[in-house]
């Protein structure tokens, strides 16, 4: 068992959704003062404003946080704001695939907390 399967390392080294969206419909920043990780999450809706057209994240952090943010940005594409509100931490952990140790859970969930804050702005 490893928390660092190949996909996680790939997403950490070459994240597919890292970047900034100019004039997003919603954005939120979160920091984990314990380890210095920080993330900004950006959401842009489609023209009808019914679904997430794209999600991006920026910031710096450990491999688990970065991979989790990348997975999250992929997962929320096409979701309605209702879907986002229903999206739970368990949903993210299920997509992530590995159960982290309690000490590392916060790393995985920092992007999720940013998503929850951003969702309130939609």
């Amino acid at each position: 068992m490893t928390l660092y399967r190949q996909e996680i390392i790939e997403r950490y080294r070459f994240p597919r959704y890292k970047g900034v969206i100019k004039n997003p419909h919603a954005q939120a920043e979160k920091i984990n003062s314990f380890c210095g990780d920080e993330i900004a999450l950006f959401l842009r809706l489609n023209d009808e404003k019914s679904q997430v057209a794209e999600a991006r994240f920026d910031g710096q952090g450990c491999a688990l946080m970065t991979a989790s943010a990348d997975i999250l940005c992929e997962a929320v594409q096409g979701k309605t704001s209702d879907d986002l509100r229903k999206f739970s931490a368990e949903d993210l952990l299920q997509i992530y695939g590995e159960a982290p140790s309690p000490g590392r859970l916060k790393c995985l969930l920092l992007p999720y907390e940013a998503l929850k804050s951003a969702t309130t702005l939609l």
Partner: peptide, 15 residues
């Protein structure tokens, strides 16, 4: 070796 990060471009074009 496994984790040393390669700097990722943050250009908006890439986004």
């Amino acid at each position: 070796k496994k984790l040393s990060a390669i700097p990722v471009s943050l250009s908006h074009d890439a986004v």
